[in-house]
Each structure stands twice: as C-alpha cells, then as structure tokens.
C-alpha cells in the first residue's frame, strides 16, 4: 500500500543554511493494509521526519513515496489526506483549546463533506467515535481540558477515521498517557488494523512496539539498521544496536543483569562483527550506501540487517 523507496531527508541548518543535516538516510520499507509496522528509534533518530514526509508536511530530499503505486508528491493533497492521516504526540497541543470536539469534527465536514445531509454526517461521527470506544455524549460538547489525555488521543484518532482513511501515522501517541489508559489506545490500533487499516506506529518504547506490531523497523541516526517480522527482530536481534536496545528495556519480571548474562551466553560473534558483510562479502565498496548497494541484506526469511559501519569507507 504505502512504500518508501530510497528516501532521504537533508535539512539545511546553520547560519545561512550552509550545513547539511542528514536526518533520514536511504530508507526503504512498506506498510500494507491490515498491518501495524512499528518504527523504533531513540530521540533524534529521524522517526518524526519520516512520519512528516509520509504526511507531506515536509518533502523528501531524495527517493519516492508511493501509495498504491502512485507518487504521493504528485497526488492532489485533499484526495491524499482522505486516505492517509496522522496523529501526533501531544494531544493537548495538536488540538485547539478553544474548540469543542463537535466543532473540530465540523471543520472536517466543511472541507471534505460539504454536501452531506445531517443525518448521514451524524451517523458517520457516531461510527467514528464508536470505533475508538468513546461515548458521543461524554465527549462531543466538551473542551479539550475537560477530557483526559486518553480520551483526547482517541478523539483525534476518531477525527482521522471520519475520512475513511486507509493508513494512519501514529507518532508517539502513547507516551503522554498514563499506564491505565495507554493500553486502551494501543488496543485501538489493533482494532483498526483488524478493520484493514495500515498503521505506522512510531515509538521509542520497545514494549509498546512489541505488543502492537507485526513488523518492526529499528532506526539509528536516520538509517534503518534492522527490520523484519517483530518476533524475529526481538527474538534474534542481529545488529549490535538492536541488541543493546533490547538489553536496555526495563522489564517487569527480569532484571537487567540477568538479560545481559543471557545475551552474553547466546551472542557468539563479537559485538563489532558485521553480519551484513559476513552474509554479503562481495558487497564492498565506497562506504556510503548507494542504490546499487542494498541498505539491508536478508538474515533469514523476513528479517534484514544493515552494515554496522555503512558510512566508513573500507571499514568492513
């Protein structure tokens, strides 16, 4: 459905925009219908930049993003946004505090559904709220500050659902929420997936990613270093960075020390051994990953890993 093909983003920073900051480097992946893909990475790794490029809030410097095979940069915006919507981290800031929920929904109506009869519109609002588990009476006539973070986050998802979207970009939508409500929003993503939506779930929290996604992408400094079926990436982490991340996750039932010991006993190759080049010795070259040289190679079925020194000439 949605595919990124060798996408890079370079921001111009510094006094006269004279310095290049490569926020996203040669990223390729796709999100299919009925699939939750989690994009995991630490602060500054480029997660939001990828989400913003998909939502056309910023332009890719290189590469293409396609939806059902069509270049999204060439699709009319309004039509594209009926298919693809985003929900972001802080529900309180992405929601204008002076508008009640029904007004925010009404704005969608005036842009996309001008001619729709009232009864049909009301049914649509009700269906969207029902899909996110909200009671219309409980939320519609309220200001944002009268709702909890979880309610507000679900309301924003409901707003996206008014548009019959097929793809949702959810950027850190859970991190602001309390434990007792975050799981409901997480379950909601699962329900939407069951309805056939494709979801890109952006998070820095590996437990949330594990719980909700079928596929996992691990992003390090703008580059995907490992990708594949969630249980394979977590069960058999191959890139040293993925291993370190997984060993750092605080678990409820196992101490860090124990996890470290287990990883030490199972991890045979040295930490600096490059699996990418062990699998593809012929792929040496100029360092920087070029279209001619794939960013990732296959470790096992549906599990891919990148070079650990991709931008260092002659390093592996």
């Amino acid at each position: 459905m949605l595919t990124l093909d060798h996408v890079s983003k370079i921001y111009k920073v510094g006094t006269f925009g004279g310095t290049d900051l490569a926020a996203v480097k040669d990223v390729s992946f796709s999100v299919d219908a009925g699939q939750v893909v989690s994009l995991i990475g630490e602060s500054g790794s480029g997660k939001t930049t990828i989400g913003r490029m998909i939502l056309r809030l910023t332009q890719a410097t290189r590469g293409t993003i396609t939806f059902d095979g069509q270049d999204v940069a060439k699709l009319p915006r309004r039509g594209y946004y009926r298919l693809v919507q985003g929900v972001f981290q802080d529900p309180f800031s992405s929601y204008n505090p002076i508008f009640k929920a029904d007004h925010v929904f009404g704005m969608i109506r005036s842009v996309y559904f001008r001619g729709m009869p009232n009864a049909e519109w009301d049914a649509r609002v009700e269906a969207a709220l029902e899909a996110v588990g909200l009671d219309p009476d409980q939320v519609l006539h309220k200001y944002p500050h009268q709702l909890s973070g979880g309610q507000l986050q679900r309301l924003l998802i409901a707003r996206a659902l008014l548009l019959d979207i097929r793809m949702l970009v959810a950027d850190e939508i859970i991190s602001m929420l309390d434990a007792s409500t975050r799981i409901d929003v997480l379950n909601l993503l699962g329900d939407l997936k069951a309805r056939g939506l494709g979801i890109l779930f952006i998070t820095h929290d590996l437990s949330l990613g594990y719980y909700s996604s079928q596929r996992t992408l691990i992003l390090l400094r703008g580059q995907i270093v490992e990708m594949g079926a969630t249980e394979k990436v977590y069960g058999n982490p191959t890139h040293p960075y993925t291993k370190m991340l997984i060993a750092s996750v605080p678990l409820l039932h196992k101490k860090w020390r124990q996890v470290e010991q287990e990883l030490e006993t199972t991890a045979a190759p040295a930490a600096d051994a490059c699996t990418y080049h062990a699998l593809q010795p012929e792929l040496r070259g100029d360092g920087a990953s070029a279209p001619a040289r794939p960013a990732l190679v296959e470790v096992e079925e549906d599990h891919f890993v990148g070079c650990i020194r991709p931008y260092v000439k002659g390093a592996c």
Binding site: S180, Y210, Y211, S212, H253
Partner: peptide, 19 residues
C-alpha cells in the same frame, strides 16, 4: 495497573491487556 502494562514478550494478538 500491573495487569495493564505491556512488556516485551506480550502481544496484542496473543494476550489482550485491558486498561
């Protein structure tokens, strides 16, 4: 509260937690 916490090893598809 404890039973609402996702953890690596727990998946929506296998074990649905509730808030």
């Amino acid at each position: 509260l404890i039973s609402s916490l996702p953890e690596v090893g727990v998946r929506y598809a296998d074990k649905r937690l509730t808030g």
